[in-house]
Write a protein that binds this DNA or RNA. Structure first.
Lengths: 124, 124
DNA sequence: CTTGAAAGTTTACTGTTGTAGTCTAATCAA
DNA sequence: TTGATTAGACTACAACAGTAAACTTTCAAG
């Protein structure tokens, strides 16, 4: 069903990040506190974003005042990576990796670890 | 100066793709033809998008009726990859690659080629 | 020159996103 | 039971994005 994965907007993503940073459902008060501090958002802004995210099925109201991420960071990240590859790397993830590499985004240590992953060590 | 890289919207990106697909400046008539066919856009839509892209400095009017991409696909792709990494992979390109891998986005052949790249063969 | 087509410019309209006020319903303490 | 606090729902509004019509300028052909 998640095929329809509605796009998460920038502001909404900020809310998801907070939810993702906690293994437990997060109380509204906490969201308000963190986002108010980090982004200077008013109470109603946070509530509006939560409402929109619930509408998109990315967040669920666990119980009164407790919100939980339905869409996981891993899912969304994977989906975003695929979309980027499709849009800008001609559908080739390899090209994306090559770009990261030539852009100096991978340190020597990263390369070493990735080499291991690419070979034996099952990446999952 | 391109530091201010204004964000390219989805519709605008379609236009860029056509420009990127040609090494030469592209005549408006051609853009209209391709985008009219691919997206069903009216003449004025294409013109509006071109104007907005010119405003963002991503496209230039080479001469009457001839448009040229100023922002290159490589530049924009690189920038987008960095942004994705920053937003969803904790700033670690390595994590993005690991995600692609565990998501099965890299074929055996891709992995072989990347291994070569990661080692000796300069990725540029 | 005049005119007509193509290019360029202005204006427009709807839906979405960022941000937030307000009103109502639920809850908790006294 | 009532009053205060908090959560949820509804409304708002400007900026931007997607889409396009209408108007104006330019240029080449006749």
């Amino acid at each position: 069903m998640c095929g329809s994965a509605e796009k998460i907007q920038d502001a909404e993503l900020e809310v998801m990040q907070v939810l993702w940073d906690s293994p437990q459902p997060v109380p509204l008060a906490e969201l308000r506190r963190v986002l108010g501090q980090q982004r200077g958002w008013e109470d109603s802004t946070v509530k509006t974003l939560l409402r929109r995210l619930c509408g998109k099925g990315a967040v669920a109201l666990e119980r009164r005042g407790m919100y939980r991420a339905v869409l996981t960071r891993a899912e969304y990240s994977r989906w975003s990576a695929r979309r980027l590859v499709g849009k800008l790397f001609d559908g080739s993830a390899k090209q994306l990796v090559a770009s990261l590499l030539s852009d100096g985004q991978l340190s020597e240590a990263d390369i070493a670890e990735l080499s291991a992953l690419l070979h034996g060590e099952d990446g999952k």
